[in-house]
């Protein structure tokens, strides 16, 4: 029935994965693409390079805690950082709708410059296209990023060294970004103080790697939320991922909004959250290092890898029950009653 692209194809869940696997990877077929990490790892002269790209189409373009420009820098920086790479250079491509206020563009660009400086990356090339009114929604931004990847971190993106006993850490509360955007987009009638978690994570990640912690896997939990990362981890290496619901940090206001609207916070987008799998004996030390960073104050160990349900992510619920965590099928739609 589906011979057209649906919004669900962009949700980051099951439909997105099928689209990538069955169309893009099939036709663009090459070994570098096959790894399917957050960045492609390219062979270099001395060190390998990590290369990534992402497009940003958020609506509204200004939201509590950031704007589309901040997302465009942080998102791409984070994709490099979670691959174990040190982000260095970015490109920035703008598609702008005719009639877009110049002041808004300026605000976005100034934000981008500030975030790039904070993250220690330089925007070294770019492109601008303006399209007729109605042909894009205000402004779309694409950024690509390049960084160097030390050989010793080469396997982080694939997660191939993950094994039973390893622990799973997240650097803070989940679902803030998605609910912050949702609140301003759809619910003008009620006010919340939810703020997007959008942040560059490269300094946090660098501090963990510099501390010599054995990080075996990292991914930023963006679209599709924490649940999607956990499913990818479980499915890609047939591992058993076990999560303790009560250990997963979530802000009360976010939880309240999710309860009210029938959203599962595990599937709601984040823009400043990294999921790390570390060796068991490094877990407490990793947590301590992460907590020292401004973006890791509420970090927590949320689960472990075991051998109970290979290929599946299982959640121990707050009341002691257990259930499977699956990838989101389409868009997360609110329930009726």
């Amino acid at each position: 029935m589906e011979n057209t692209i649906l919004l669900g194809h962009g949700s980051g869940g099951r439909l997105t994965h099928e689209l990538i696997k069955e169309l893009f990877v099939t036709h663009f077929d090459n070994p570098l693409l096959h790894e399917q990490g957050d960045s492609a790892i390219l062979p270099g002269c001395n060190e390998a390079m990590a290369y990534t790209t992402d497009s940003y189409v958020v609506d509204p373009i200004f939201f509590p805690g950031g704007n589309i420009g901040k997302l465009a820098i942080c998102g791409t920086v984070n994709d490099l950082a979670v691959s174990g790479a040190q982000p260095l250079y970015l490109s920035a491509g703008f598609i702008i709708e005719e009639g877009f206020p110049f002041d808004d563009l300026k605000k976005i660009v100034i934000t981008m410059a500030g975030e790039a400086q904070k993250a220690g990356v330089r925007i070294v090339t770019g492109d601008t296209k303006v399209v007729n009114k109605g042909q894009c929604d205000k402004i779309f931004i694409n950024t690509a990023g390049l960084g160097f990847l030390p050989e010793k971190f080469r396997d982080i993106t694939s997660g191939k060294r993950v094994c039973a006993g390893d622990r799973i850490i997240i650097n803070g509360t989940i679902a803030d970004h998605g609910m912050a955007v949702m609140a301003v987009r759809n619910f003008a009638s009620f006010t919340t103080d939810i703020i997007s978690d959008c942040a560059p994570l490269n300094s946090l990640i660098k501090s963990v790697l510099d501390a010599g912690i054995d990080v075996k896997f990292m991914r930023d939990a963006t679209r599709g939320g924490l649940a999607t990362v956990l499913c990818e981890l479980a499915e890609s290496h047939n591992m058993s991922v076990h999560i303790y619901e009560e250990a997963v940090p979530i802000n009360e206001n976010v939880r309240g909004m999710c309860e009210l609207l029938g959203f599962d916070p595990f599937y709601v987008a984040n823009e400043g959250k990294v999921v790390m799998v570390v060796a068991d004996n490094d877990a407490e030390r990793a947590l301590a290092v992460i907590k020292q960073n401004e973006f890791g104050k509420q970090a927590a160990i949320i689960g472990e890898i075991n051998e109970l349900h290979n290929g599946k992510a299982v959640l121990n619920t707050v009341v002691g029950g257990s259930r499977i965590i699956d990838m989101l099928a389409g868009e997360q739609l609110p329930r009726i009653c």
Binding site: M1, E2, T4, I5, L6, G8, L333, P334, R335
Partner: peptide, 21 residues
């Protein structure tokens, strides 16, 4: 409509599919 209904299959289409068209 409330969200869920958009994906419910009719005989040959769904509201979501109509939206994409």
């Amino acid at each position: 409509t409330y969200g869920d209904l958009m994906r419910v299959p009719g005989s040959t289409s769904t509201l979501m599919l109509e939206k994409s068209k």
